[in-house]
Write a protein that binds this DNA or RNA. Structure first.
Lengths: 147, 147
DNA sequence: TTACTTGCAAATCATTTGCATCCAA
DNA sequence: TTGGATGCAAATGATTTGCAAGTAA
């Protein structure tokens, strides 16, 4: 945890940004909730527990900044709020989402199944893939059992 | 065109909805711009040319309704506006998006590359896929040439 | 006739911004 | 010391909603 924060601190400083108390508190919340897909509001409420003075605007600004630095990934599941996922150490994101339309649960496939497709795009379409996003909507294993 | 409208009319009526002038004008705009990814505002302006009395709220309500009926697909490319795509006749959508981060163009791959993955999900995860979404961000062929 | 629809304006809700003040490096 | 950062409140922009009046079936 400390190592990851240190690393991000250096990433910030190399671009002329500062690691403020608020930014560090926000990062810690993100690290502690790595499995979730928190909205800015969610992050705000959690950070408030440690740093009550923080403002919502700061959280938005921090998340936007971390997003530009590819520390977090900004996601949109179509429910009207942006959600933020911490990326792994390489700042890569190679997982896909399984969104259950019955219970609303969201699971992840932590593998990258798209490399062959990205290859195909390069060859057949001349398109260089930098990032991708793959979500599946359907019925999760638990809900399937309930039927 | 008429046939598709007739079909959608029946789909509406079978659920107790009416095909009003406004809804028909909206459908015609969507049909005429099938290749685009129009926002509600875009649709509103285009419909206004044929039916000047229409209100923006009606366009939103119509698009929402058509989305529930799976006539259109509501998309979100992360630019703060929802966009709407007409689905094909089976109400299936089997295409993927190529979004260029240089020029902002959006291309489509009109094939479904995910069937093998959906099979894998069913077997390995017990997850029944109903719908999916796949977008690639990267550099398009045209921008690649300019380099 | 009678639900379902509409247009309008007002309301919501997420996100952004201006600005005076603050603080990490 | 000083340019980037913050908190607050106000502004913005997309989308939704209440309501009286309109209309397709």
């Amino acid at each position: 945890m400390e190592a990851r924060i240190e690393k991000i601190k250096q990433q910030l400083q190399s671009q002329g940004y500062k690691l403020t108390l608020q930014r560090e508190a926000t990062l810690r919340v993100l690290l502690e909730h790595e499995a979730d897909h928190l909205s800015a509001e969610d992050v705000f409420l959690l950070v408030k527990e440690k740093a009550p003075e923080i403002g919502l605007a700061t959280v938005y600004r921090t998340l936007e900044l971390l997003s530009e630095l590819h520390v977090v990934e900004k996601l949109n599941f179509g429910d009207g709020v942006a959600r933020y996922d911490l990326r792994n150490d390489n700042n890569q994101h190679h997982h896909h989402h399984l969104i259950c339309i019955k219970c609303g649960s969201m699971d992840e496939v932590k593998e990258d199944w798209l490399l062959p497709l990205e290859e195909k795009l390069a060859v057949e379409y001349g398109f260089t893939v930098i990032d991708h996003r793959l979500d599946f909507q359907g019925i999760c294993a638990a809900c399937n059992k309930l039927e």
